[in-house]
Design a protein around this nucleic acid. Structure first.
Lengths: 110, 110
DNA sequence: TTCTTATGCATAATAAACTTAGGTATATTT
DNA sequence: AAATATACCTAAGTTTATTATGCATAAGAA
C-alpha cells in the first residue's frame, strides 16, 4: 500500500469514497484509479483489496454485478443505500482524524 | 484508542511528536495529555502504549530514565538524536498522508 | 512466435498494530 | 472502608495489510 503505516485502516474509506464518486467500479480499476489519483504514492495491493471488497459486500455495503469484457471477467461493485450512508460516516471520521492529528501535532493552532 | 480505525498506525507518530514538544514524559502522562489535547476523542490504551514505548526504546529512538515520585515509579522517556530525526520523518509522512487522502476524497481540489 | 507485461480474479501464510482483559502496587478521594 | 486515580506491565485474540502464490486471457515486444 505504502511504506507509511498511516494508511492502515484507510482502505475501506478509500474504496467507499471511490465508489461514491464513480458509481460502479471493478477491483483492478480501483487499484489503477488510486495509483493515478495519488501519482503513484499509493498502491493498493490485491491481497488487501479483494478481501476488503468481499467483506464490504458481506456487510451489505456493496452490491456486485459480474460482467464479461473481452472474454475476461469483471466484478463491478456499487454502493448500496447502507453503503452510501456508511460512506458519509467514513468521510466524517477522516475529517475528524485529520483535525485531531493536527491538534496533536500543532497544538498552537488548536 | 478510538472507534475510528484511521488511528491505526498513528501511535508512534503521536508519541514521538509529544516527546518532541515536551522533552520528557512518562507513559501515564502521555495518555492524559492525548486525552486532554483531543478533548476526549482519543484515548491511548495502555496495552498499546507500553509495548510501543518499549519498541521505540529498543530501536534507539527513545531513552529512558526511571524516577520515583510520591513513592510511585515513573519511567521518563525522551527522544534520542535518532528519535528526533525520525520524528521529522513521521511528521512529513503525516502531512503526505493527509494530502494524499484529500486528493482521493476530493479530487476536484487536487 | 515465444516471452513478457497487462488485465482480472482469488486465497493462504505471515507480520504488525491494536484491543481486551487481565495483573501488581501506591495515593487520594468519597 | 471502598472506590478512583496514578503508574507500571503482559498475554491472548482480532483486525488489517503484506507477501507469495495461483489461475486465466489479451496485448505487446523480442
Amino acid at each position: 500500500m505504502s511504506n507509511s503505516k498511516l494508511y492502515k485502516g484507510s482502505l475501506n474509506t478509500i474504496i467507499l469514497q471511490l465508489l461514491n464518486q464513480h458509481n460502479k467500479m471493478y477491483g483492478y480499476e480501483i487499484t489503477q484509479k488510486v495509483k493515478a489519483l495519488t501519482k503513484g504514492e499509493l498502491n493498493i495491493t490485491e491481497g488487501a483489496l479483494y478481501p476488503a471488497l468481499h467483506k464490504l459486500e458481506a456487510e451489505g455495503l456493496l452490491d456486485v454485478e459480474v460482467a464479461k469484457v473481452d472474454n475476461r471477467l469483471r466484478k463491478y461493485y456499487k454502493l448500496t443505500d447502507t453503503g452510501t450512508k456508511e460512506t458519509v460516516n467514513k468521510l466524517e471520521e477522516l475529517a475528524d482524524y485529520i483535525k485531531t492529528m493536527q491538534a496533536l501535532v500543532n497544538p498552537k493552532l488548536a
